[in-house]
Design a protein around this nucleic acid. Structure first.
Lengths: 238, 238
DNA sequence: CAGTGGTCTAGACCACATT
DNA sequence: ATGTGGTCTAGACCACTGT
């Protein structure tokens, strides 16, 4: 995909780790050896290794080397910015998306605040439920600023909106701020989901930004308690 | 603290952003200007700016510059590896820790598996509740491998175990894998917490590793539903 | 002691945005 | 054309680990 040298090296070693060609506890070749074998400089190797380290594949130990971290302890981190399509790969059952509401709206006070929108902005509102194994367990409420997403259709919403945004509209999603809380179920939740008597629901609020740092989407992903799972890898210190 | 040049520069600019000396949307000086003014090389400046970018302070835009991200949208990310003491800074009320159980145990099958421990390993078990505003809302269950933590006392557990581990024992906590799920309340939860009728509880499971990549702690932090909040900053892509 | 990763330098060329 | 960030190089010195 990208033509970065260090990214290619990163990819090559993530593959070796994922496939088990290198196992947890084993060491990678030293930075000097890698620099030699890839015919590149050590700093470039280090960029690749830092990526591996940040993403939880290896631990670098001064004076010793870079050793592979056990990646089995949890199914692999799917944290960060992931769309429903990516998440659902981890399920065996076939997920089904249903679009319940789709259209252009004027911002109500809540959305206006979430998206830093003005009263003149128009906003795409999309309400979708996600069924896995025959049960509707996730309710996704998406709001996009029309000035960044000029066109959208119900059909696109039945597939992957993100694929459309990135491939068709060439939008570069760059980062997101995420908040996870538990709320009381609403009438809307009860209407669209199979709640099985649960009175609360896990809400993941996402503020999504483009690469020019403008906020363009606010999303609430509402998960039935018993089906919610979030995994994360974190390095300590600044 | 550390004497890294790039880390010092990083710290200097996080301060300027946090205090509002530079506001969201404004640009930092260019990399060349910064290199000049700090009398250092551009690569060193870039290491500092990459830290700012990874931690959600700035967005770097090719051809334009590094602009400050709005950091108000959510109270500042306290994600990743944080101890209870750090979390509680964000509360106004004074938190109170109570140690309910403290001692050395032989691993039961569950803990054995969580810590990859052998039957001969000894394990410190610590059960603590956290009260904020007079209500016990968090139950922390900590398990440490004794081979990494030779001595521990009830008194230490009443304060910050992490401070003890890092300052006294000189252990370098390096990274953690985290999992967030919702479970049914247990009798233990009901015994130590003020649950107010909630039947479920948010469980944060933490697998904590030292800088030599050895797993030394497993922790379950059990939060009352209405008091749980997790925030995160994530950049997209590999 | 030799080998490892951690930091830093002073250059170079590129892709992109602005004027 | 100029200035910006993104990548890459070929060195250097340091702190740490092993023998």
């Amino acid at each position: 995909m990208r033509k970065n040298k260090y990214h290619a090296i990163y990819k090559e070693w993530t593959d070796k780790i994922k496939t088990g060609e290198i196992k947890a506890g084993e060491a990678l070749p030293s930075e000097n050896e890698l620099a030699e074998s890839y015919n590149t400089s050590r700093e470039t190797i280090r960029k690749a290794l830092n990526l591996l380290s940040q993403n939880g594949f290896i631990q670098k130990i001064k004076g010793k080397g870079s050793i592979v971290i056990d990646v089995q302890k949890m199914s692999f981190p799917i944290s960060g910015l992931v769309s429903f399509k990516e998440i659902s790969k981890n399920f065996t059952a076939e997920p089904i998306t249903t679009v319940h509401d789709f259209g252009l709206i004027k911002p109500d006070p809540f959305i206006k605040q979430q998206l830093n929108a003005s009263s003149k902005d128009e906003i795409w509102k999309v309400i979708r439920s996600r069924a896995i194994g025959g049960e509707n367990i996730i309710l996704d409420k998406d709001f996009f600023l029309k000035k960044f997403v000029p066109t959208l259709s119900k059909q696109i919403c039945e597939g992957s909106i993100y694929e459309y945004l990135e491939k068709e509209l060439q939008l570069n999603i760059s980062f997101a701020k995420k908040e996870i809380v538990v709320e009381d179920c609403t009438e809307e939740d009860r209407g669209y989901l199979d709640l099985e008597g649960f009175s609360h629901i896990v809400v993941v609020k996402n503020y999504v930004y483009l690469d020019n740092a403008s906020l363009f989407q606010y999303t609430e992903s509402r998960h039935r308690l018993d089906k919610f799972r979030f995994v994360d890898f974190a390095r300590r210190g600044v």
